[in-house]
């Protein structure tokens, strides 16, 4: 017998939640329990009283599954709001990566040149290494990391995506 899967779409969800113990486990657990995908997840509290956190989840699935994910998230008690940013019109996505490159000579110079092209900042250096900080959408970060592979890449740390809708209106 065969198991067939439907074609998936990529969606970015912005979720505001009460900043309390266990809320992140509740949300990630929902994704595992129901077989949904998480491509990336970021979370931090966003209000001055630290009462509310914003979680950004990049997920993928066929449209009915995305609908279900939103409905399932929305019914969790500590969830205030769930927004599919793709449904809200244009939005901006950013992530930060810290990219460590080791080496000397021509490769080291090439790494620095490429970093300049990508407007990556040097945040640490030794005689045989750099740590670059690069900000951008995931594609740009991916491309930078791919190029650095040729220039002595040894380690990468990425934040995952944060995203916000364009224009004056708020979540």
């Amino acid at each position: 017998m065969k198991i067939t899967l439907q074609a998936a779409e990529r969606h970015v969800l912005a979720i505001t939640v009460t900043n309390e113990a266990g809320v992140l486990a509740k949300i990630t657990g929902l994704f595992t329990a129901r077989g949904y995908n998480i491509e990336s997840l970021t979370v931090a509290d966003i209000t001055s009283d630290h009462a509310v956190s914003r979680i950004t989840i990049v997920t993928n699935g066929p449209p009915p599954v995305i609908d279900q994910i939103i409905a399932q998230l929305d019914r969790l008690v500590p969830v205030h709001k769930v927004v599919d940013l793709a449904d809200q019109g244009p939005h901006v996505e950013r992530e930060i990566a810290l990219v460590k490159v080791a080496g000397t000579g021509e490769k080291r110079i090439e790494a620095l040149r490429l970093a300049d092209v990508f407007r990556a900042k040097v945040v640490d250096t030794t005689l045989e290494s750099f740590v670059f900080e690069i900000t951008g959408n995931s594609d740009k970060v991916d491309r930078f990391i791919a190029l650095m592979r040729e220039c002595g890449l040894v380690e990468v740390g990425r934040t995952g995506v944060v995203a916000i809708a364009r224009g004056a209106s708020a979540l």
Partner: peptide, 14 residues
């Protein structure tokens, strides 16, 4: 207990 019952309750508290 809150970990074990997180996904079989509507909500739980410690």
């Amino acid at each position: 207990t809150v970990g074990i019952t997180r996904h079989c309750t509507k909500h739980n508290y410690l």
